[in-house]
């Protein structure tokens, strides 16, 4: 197996190149300093700021592996933040750790319910994932606004602020959350059979059903995981701005998450997925974002850059481009190998 054939080679290479370019353009980029036992620096910022996108993208990876998509993640983030901050705001003691813990748990439960709702529409009613999650994408922000009473709820709560900007030992707490979730998902994938069963459902739902796989439960579960992770991301986001902003929370994050998944080498057609790939994809996006900011481009304009990245990636992955490249590289590869990549659509011969 040559190294560039490895599925994570290109994403990793892109990340390394991006970091290298930054390091050359601004040497302070790589500098990490230790102040009062806490690490600081541009790289640390990237790790910290990437937490919300990381969580959403990981959930999205699992949903995409089942041949689905979750467009409602931004709205779920908004609802989760609104729930948590409204509870903290309404409590007698916003600064108490207990209050914040209760608020976080309730917000996560609400997010779980929202994810279960998406899962219900997709797996029980058989509605196309994009359409099913569109409903919540539309209504979710309305729900969030209703919870906050139409205002941007701001709170002053030290334990809440800690979630996004605090440090646990030397590392930012938000980054620790990312690491814990990545590790948990990695362990579940490695130590249980969920990974391979999810891939089986995504590759061929009917063959999986005949093999006795609980397709419905697995799909349902994927949306619930996506919901909870989006909820957690919403809390981190709200903690970061110390407010619940129903309109701005998770705005456009569905596209960034999908982009991260695709950059990480997971196909939008479902099936084989890579947690590590998504992690790399998120880091690429966050580094690129940092680079764009460094270039002095207002952050509101950065979507233009990402639009070009999306277009480049989807064109590179399209069958037309692959065929063209294959034709350029000569038709030496046996057709049998090619036929695996092109998913067998229906029956081929009969």
């Amino acid at each position: 197996m040559r190294i560039w054939r490895h599925r994570l080679f290109w994403p990793s290479a892109a990340l390394v190149v991006l970091v290298a370019v930054n390091a050359i353009a601004r040497p302070q980029f790589l500098r990490i300093t230790l102040q009062d036992g806490e690490l600081y620096g541009a790289l640390i910022d990237i790790l910290r700021n990437s937490a919300p996108l990381m969580l959403v993208a990981l959930g999205m990876t699992i949903v995409i592996a089942t041949r689905g998509i979750d467009l409602s993640v931004g709205a779920v983030m908004a609802v989760s933040g609104a729930v948590a901050l409204t509870i903290i705001d309404g409590s007698g003691d916003p600064g108490a750790t207990g209050t914040v813990l209760v608020a976080v748990v309730v917000a996560l439960l609400v997010s779980l319910v929202l994810g279960a709702w998406n899962g219900f529409l997709v797996s029980a009613l058989g509605i196309q994932p994009i359409v099913a999650t569109l409903v919540l994408m539309l209504a979710g922000r309305g729900v969030a606004l209703l919870i906050t009473g139409g205002f941007i709820t701001t709170v002053n709560s030290a334990p809440l602020a800690y979630i996004a900007s605090g440090y646990l030992t030397v590392l930012p707490f938000a980054f620790i959350i990312s690491v814990v979730v990545i590790t948990a998902l990695g362990l579940v994938e490695r130590r249980t059979a969920l990974g391979v069963l999810t891939e089986a459902v995504g590759i061929n739902p009917e063959a999986s059903r005949l093999a006795g796989v609980r397709s419905r439960g697995i799909i349902w579960g994927a949306y619930m995981v996506s919901g909870v992770l989006a909820g957690l991301a919403g809390i981190i986001y709200a903690s970061n701005i110390k407010a619940a902003d129903a309109n701005a929370a998770g705005f456009l994050i569905e596209l960034y998450a999908i982009l991260a998944v695709v950059l990480g080498g997971t196909s939008l057609a479902g099936g084989k997925f890579s947690i590590a790939g998504t992690v790399i994809g998120v880091l690429i996006i966050q580094t690129l974002d940092s680079t764009i900011l460094f270039l002095g481009v207002p952050s509101a304009q950065s979507p233009v850059f990402f639009a070009f990245v999306v277009v480049a990636v989807v064109i590179a992955q399209s069958p037309r481009t692959r065929n063209a490249l294959r034709a350029l590289g000569g038709a030496r590869r046996p057709r049998a190998a090619a036929s695996v990549q092109d998913r067998p659509k229906v029956e081929v011969a009969s």
């Binding site: 939008l268 990402f306 639009a307 070009f308 989807v314 481009t321």
Partner: peptide, 29 residues
């Protein structure tokens, strides 16, 4: 993108959304 590169419509149009929104800010903040 949809027709000739077989990109799913919602992905292609999300890219269009990004592009247009970003360009709007490029024109004026």
């Amino acid at each position: 993108l949809v027709q000739y590169f077989s990109v799913q419509p919602f992905i292609a149009s999300l890219a269009g959304l990004f592009l247009a929104r970003g360009l709007a800010y490029v024109v004026s903040l």
